[in-house]
Design a protein around this nucleic acid. Sequence first.
DNA 1: ACCTGAACACCGTTCAAGT
DNA 2: ACCTGAACACCGTTCAAGT
Lengths: 243, 243
Amino acid sequence: VQPLKRDAARVDEAPRAALTCTKALRGDAERNRKRLVEAAGCAFAELGFGVSVEEIARRAGLGKGTVFRRFPTKDDLVAAIVCDRMDELQRFGDALLEEDESGESIHQFMMRAVAILSQDRGLLEAIHGLSCTNVDVQSAKHMVVETVGALLAREQRAGFIRSDIAACDVMLLTAAVSHIAAPFHAIDSDIWTRYLDLVFDGLRPDAAHPCSHAPPTEEQMMRAATADVGLRRLPGSGPAPTV
Amino acid sequence: VQPLKRDAARVDEAPRAALTCTKALRGDAERNRKRLVEAAGCAFAELGFGVSVEEIARRAGLGKGTVFRRFPTKDDLVAAIVCDRMDELQRFGDALLEEDESGESIHQFMMRAVAILSQDRGLLEAIHGLSCTNVDVQSAKHMVVETVGALLAREQRAGFIRSDIAACDVMLLTAAVSHIAAPFHAIDSDIWTRYLDLVFDGLRPDAAHPCSHAPPTEEQMMRAATADVGLRRLPGSGPAPTV
DNA sequence: ACCTGAACACCGTTCAAGT
DNA sequence: ACCTGAACACCGTTCAAGT
């Protein structure tokens, strides 16, 4: 629905989703779309997923009908923002993969990710929430996981991280630390460092005790991400479930 | 608003909130209230905070007006459920404090807490959400923290847990692990053991690296718990914020 | 006292009427 | 093509009318 917004270098190599309409927009429409995404990004970060579409439209100087013309559903709008931030993270990870050889790169990655997530309510809500059903978010997330996997493998070979950790563990723990830190955003915005430190101590080989459970498979991750749809029912999609 | 429902032994020792109306209800009203709380507990656990009040009322066999007569706001209803579960946890902690001397009691406590939280969507949402503004929830949470503090001190003295950990750290990390596990509820309901294992490895003295940040103070915890009110606006409380 | 359902405000979504 | 605001369904909350 929204046009691709990735760095030119990778566009043809991995066209995000076949469904995505890539048709160029008319001049004014394109400008409106930019304003909209900008306004939505700020509004979600400030106020969380709960901001009304009308408020976003007002900030962007548009009628709310226009919002729904560009993004058929509020969740699609959220997804567009989430994809942007996710791409940003992935580029950061790629850069670490090329530049940093210090054995600190997973730590660096987690720090960056938590710093972003814990200050952006909407993003965090969205990542644990149902907008993950969105195809674009899924694939953006998948690419991040791959990058993390590469960073991880390198550090495990060097003995900096315990060997029974998978890339998805890193993702899940990163989100978890962000969740701890988020409510402290305006109170003590650095507090995430404490919990990242603690969690990270558990990722080093020094004190590793064997885990009693394997990491989730890729399919389980997928199912978990799309699992909890169904409570926030789409109005107009039939009568309320009688349960 | 809702009558106290604690074990008789503690009622006078710590009356939960001065505001709470303790007047006895008429027979039928009391029975309806029980049904209501029962139905709400199940509905929240199954479907999360998003279930409509009307659905809850239907399950309880009541009109929705009655729900609001007993609990002036939906959040108050949530709070009542949360308090119940919180009390349950606290009693478990107290029991550990008396019986268990194995040096495993913090682990046991976290296991129980995560097992409960990760299977109860509503509870987890509520704990990280704004219903924590509720006075009763605050004080119930406070009592749990105290119990955890006692367990923790004992294990730190014995050298089972690193000494730079505070009771609120345990609480926050417990919620974080639950957050990881929650979406896997129907897929692999035991997966929380893995993340608790990993987090717990970071809590042992063996591999402890000093933390770069102190734990939050009690006042910060309080402010964080009540911080993010304001986005889910109460309808009827004036026009939308123009921001 | 307590119960109820109709009535109200709010918000996501649709759509007919405009450019 | 694109934009808009009125219209619709849904849900939390209130309240007048009933027992």
